[in-house]
Each structure stands twice: as C-alpha cells, then as structure tokens.
Design a protein around this nucleic acid. Structure first.
Lengths: 133, 133
DNA sequence: TAATAAAACGATAATAGTTATTATTTTTAA
DNA sequence: TTAAAAATAATAACTATTATCGTTTTATTA
C-alpha cells in the first residue's frame, strides 16, 4: 500500500502552478517560480512532489531526448510537440487512442497500458521565422 | 557544414555491434561489450559516436523516462515498447505513419519532421509470469 | 487540547548519465 | 611523407535527479 497523502502547502502550490501553465515547465522552472510565494521551498521537494504526482497520474511527465523532464498539469488525452529550434513543448489536441490501440493489438502480444507520442519539428513561430530568412 | 567523417575502428565496431542486437542496448552496455574486442575504448568515445550516428540518422536513440537512452541499429519505420516490469525495450513492427501524419496535420500548424511513439506495459514474458502468481 | 505517529520538509550530499577538455594518435589526401 | 583534420583515451566537469537525515508539519487520538 502506498502511504496516505498528507496535505502540504508546497504540493498544493505545485499543482496550482502547473494548472496556470500551458507550456509544460521543467522542475527547475517550477522551483524558481514557486520561490516567489514560498521562499524556503527546496528543489528536492519540487522533484519529490512532481514524481509523486505523476506516479499517481495527477500530472503528466514528458521526457524528450536526455534533457530535463517537462510536466503537464492537464491529464486529458492529448499529445505533445517539441520544437527542435526553440526547445519549447506544446500541446496537440487530438484523439488517436482507438486508432493506435486497434492497430497495435494486431502486432503485439503483451499488455499495453499506456503510450507516449511525441512530435518534433518546427513550431509555427520558428517556422515563420525560418521562412523569412 | 558538418565535418567530413573519417573512418574509425571504434565507430565501425559500435555500428557492427548494434546490428547484431535486437534489444536496444544503452551506451554503457555497448561500452562493456566492445571492451572485449577493443580493450582501450573509452566510454566518451562510445557516447560521442552514438550521438554522432543518431544525429546523422544512422541509428535511433530511444529516450524513456529519465533513465539511460537506448540505441537501435535499425532505422526502418517501426515503434518501441518498454516493459514496466523488466525495463526491457523491444520492437513493434507496424506502420502508423500515414495514419498519424494525416491526423496531426489537421491539428497543428507547424512542421512536423519526426515523431516518437513509445508504448509501455507488460511484455509477453512478464505478462505470463504475472498471470501465474 | 496535548501527545504522538506518519508524512513532508529543507539542506545538502551523493549518484547516474552524459558532455567537455586536452594532449596524443590515427586517418586521409596532397 | 608530410601535414591538416578528425578521432581517440583519459579524465574532469556538468546537469538532472535521487537519497539522506535531522527538523517541522499534519492528522489522529487520548
């Protein structure tokens, strides 16, 4: 059994902060923003709670290419896009699940409980900047 | 312009080794295996070449959840599966590209040049072991 | 409300994975 | 066969993350 959660101001602040952001901040960014309201919060606390919350499915962890993980406070089914130019991570709202699960069940004998689909390329901003050159 | 490649015994050994493996080894595993034939090879050389080769598209880098990256010597279109029980990474051979690109182009204005789709759950072995309990 | 146990904390040390530095060696082409 | 470019081994440095530990906070119960 996992231990019962006790309320903590720090954890609540982390969840609240993530809910205000659509840009999927890293642990470090969460930390430096929260220090404004909670000057004594520790980076370890941020990491601990981000892991705890994503393990419990309350937030999403997005891992791209060896760099720092990003976190998403919104857990409805959607996908992510990581721009190769600016490094930003943004949302792509669409529903592929049925399509993907139908197809993969024909091709794999194990049990698939989740999938991560990450797109990469140039975001609209960087695309237009590049075209201007 | 990127520098012209010069042949190196170490890089060739890395490519050859990856071609013999279907289990997507990490840099560390590549290193310890290659030391049998090249006792003086350095871990830095392994990392440098794995990055160089994946940047050039000759091998694939597979990033899952903060742990060490895995590398795949086969670059034809296929997807990966990471078992939550044993941590192994294996292949799923299927073609979703058209399906995915068609759908995503309706939902995103940037330019998508690649996508990474990683499945997770229980591999056939761990699934049958779990059922036996 | 005071005592207590569990959970969470902050500070910081430690670790894993990876990248950078540098002096030396290897490769390639003139 | 020499010279420039690239690659190497060894190792230091770095980044992201996790672990440790003594203290504080939270929730429960006497």
């Amino acid at each position: 059994m996992q231990p019962t959660l006790k309320h903590s101001r720090q954890r609540e602040a982390i969840i609240d902060f993530l809910k205000t952001r659509k840009d999927h901040p890293t642990a470090d960014i969460v930390y430096s923003n929260l220090r404004e309201q909670l000057p004594n919060i520790s980076l370890g606390t941020v990491y601990r709670n981000l892991s705890l919350l994503s393990d419990r499915g309350e937030i999403l962890r997005i891992s791209c290419d060896g760099k720092a993980d990003h976190f998403d406070g919104f857990t409805h089914p959607h996908y992510h896009f990581s721009c190769k130019e600016c490094g930003g991570v943004s949302d792509i709202e669409m529903d592929l699940s049925d399509l993907i699960y139908d197809k993969v069940s024909d091709n794999f004998d194990g049990q698939i409980t989740e999938h991560t689909l990450l797109f990469a390329g140039l975001c609209p901003d960087c695309l237009s900047t590049n075209n201007d050159l």
